[in-house]
Design a binder for these strands. Structure first.
Length: 488
RNA sequence: CGGGGAGUGGCGCAGUCCGGUAGCGCAUUCGCUUUGGGAGCGAAGGGUCGCAGGUUCAAAUCCUGUCUCCCCGACCA
């Protein structure tokens, strides 16, 4: 078998690139740091979108769309926010080109009076609108989400994990009280946790970020963190409690039922196409992509094993009721009856693309009333009778979904350790994984640990061990253990 | 943005040091034989050698600039 995918053990980064390429998820674009999302990759994103969008609607949100371009002056209204994003903004300065000697150049006469920023996130332009929408407590809450692209001028990029332009959703809500906004922040964090675990089969730790890792402009940033196969952590989603920072910056007040004028409380929350990178690095193996059934564009592929056209039509006829039955159950099935590829080639291709279940039917199976079922996650094959195969396969998809989550959970928990001393920590961090340790809560200690070990505090976990102790570095009191890892 | 590596038919590469008019494997097209884990034989098509300048009788090869990708650092969803 011609091996096109580098083994994870040999070169993890190359493996990741090979999987993206062989599964036809995305290409590099001619522009640095940007990517072309191919149909296979976009179909996964669309499935993610569909599931998340339903969860957002079920929690009372509605979709809207705000513009790509933001007046430069908006960015400077919230001090922390500018500081965080200023260094990575694409700026539009001109509006026209002109032909020069058969080529094309920027027309210097078209310089804009006020330069425009391509949104790195939309808080500012949205809060500018909210000012006009909100007068009374009766106008609240505002629960809006948008699906959009954003641009952040990154130094170093990787397909899906960090690109200069990426697709995401950003929720922006406005509330009358602090308590309600905090509840919203936590509610959406829980939506993300549920989505990651139930759809992506990706176990996550929920927690709150330390001050240094907080979103620019937030009071508190909550996150879901997941552990990849190479022992590095990935921040998979964030939910921010913004306090009254943006309301004050954009002067958004409402008259409450006590007659007082008050600033509005805010949240924002988002997940991006980075999730696809997380999906790849959570489940895939040396044969290529592995996708959980709930997000797989094609859940079942049927490969007929044939000697001639006559046999092909017989097998397709034999399989027809099964295919129809599966479709009726809502399973997405593809029949791969291309005759320019041999079965072995097709097997390898569908494996590289991560199709969860493969059915193979040859003359032998047909004679015996059987078919062969192969699972992508375990690579195990079995022969089963075609009678009742539809029900078997649809429940197999559920089993695979569950098993993939359990396998990822087992891998994560085996790579999670608790340490008490800084020496133990330094040793553990070299092996990768999640590490729980006591920390004194100061930025100084956090920076010291980062400088010496390259590990960062991923979050202060919401659930888990709340036993107080002593900081592993300074010996000062610590309220609870926090989660460390090297990260993407 | 600093250090290292790379860019040659769709994909993977050789050729570059030492300049002489582009080759291999896979893929593609056609034909025949094949089909239970990436088929075989025969024939055919496809490349301004990342891009732009320069040196030269002659540039994939030498020089200058520039763009993109990969790895390692500083910054980040």
């Amino acid at each position: 078998m011609a091996k096109r995918i580098t083994n994870r053990a040999d070169d993890y980064s190359q493996w990741y690139l090979d999987v993206v390429k062989e599964a036809k998820l995305a290409d590099h674009s001619p522009v640095r740091g940007c990517m072309v999302i191919r149909p296979n990759g976009f179909a996964i994103w669309e499935n993610m979108k569909q599931a998340l969008d339903k969860m957002f609607r079920d929690t009372g949100h509605e979709n809207a769309y705000f513009p790509l371009f933001i007046p430069k002056s908006f960015l400077s209204k919230e001090a922390q926010h500018v500081e965080g994003f200023a260094k990575e903004c694409a700026v539009i300065t001109h509006s026209r080109l002109m032909s020069v000697d058969g080529g094309v150049e920027v027309d210097p006469d078209s310089r804009l009076d006020e330069e425009l920023i391509v949104r790195p996130t939309s808080e500012t332009i949205i809060w500018d609108s909210y000012r006009n929408w909100i007068q009374s407590y009766r106008d609240l809450p505002i629960l809006i989400n948008q699906w959009a692209n954003v641009v952040r001028w990154e130094m170093r990029t990787r397909l899906f994990l960090r690109t200069m332009e990426f697709l995401w959703q950003e929720g922006h809500t406005a509330h009358a009280t602090e308590q309600e906004a905090v509840e919203e922040t936590l509610k959406m964090l829980e939506v993300y946790r549920t989505f990651a675990e139930e759809f992506m089969a990706m176990p996550v730790v929920t927690g709150v970020k330390t001050e240094s890792e907080r979103f620019a402009g937030a009071v508190d940033t909550y996150c879901i963190e997941s552990l990849m196969q190479d022992g590095k952590a990935l921040q998979a989603g964030t939910s921010h409690f913004l306090g009254q920072n943006f309301a004050k910056a954009f002067d958004v007040k409402f008259q409450d039922n006590d007659g007082e004028h008050k600033y509005v409380w805010a949240t924002s929350w988002g997940v991006s196409t980075r999730l696809i990178g997380g999906l790849i690095m959570t489940h895939s193996d040396d044969n290529g992509l592995v996708i959980p059934p709930k997000l797989a564009p094609t859940q079942v592929v049927l490969v007929p094993i044939i000697k001639n056209d006559d046999q092909k039509s017989q097998i397709l006829l034999y399989a027809e009721p099964l295919v129809t039955g599966l479709k009726k159950m809502g399973v997405s099935v593809k029949v791969d009856d291309r005759d320019n590829f041999k079965p072995g080639w097709k097997f390898a291709e569908h494996e590289a693309q991560g199709v969860p279940v493969r059915i193979a039917i040859g003359p032998r199976d047909m004679e015996n009333g059987n078919l062969e079922v192969a699972r992508r996650d375990t690579l195990k094959k079995e022969i089963i009778p075609i009678d009742g195969a539809g029900l078997y396969i649809s429940s197999l998809l559920e089993t695979i979904q569950k098993d993939m989550f359990e396998a990822a959970k087992k891998r994560t928990s085996e790579a999670t350790r608790h340490v008490d001393t800084y020496d133990q920590f330094k040793e553990a961090i070299e092996e990768g994984g999640f590490i729980y340790a006591h920390w004194d809560g100061t930025a100084e200690t956090e920076t010291l640990i980062k400088d010496e070990t390259k590990a960062t505090i991923r979050c202060i976990p919401l659930n888990g061990d709340k036993t107080p102790g002593k900081c592993m570095v300074t010996g000062n009191p610590s309220a609870q253990k926090v989660l460390f890892a090297r990260s993407y």
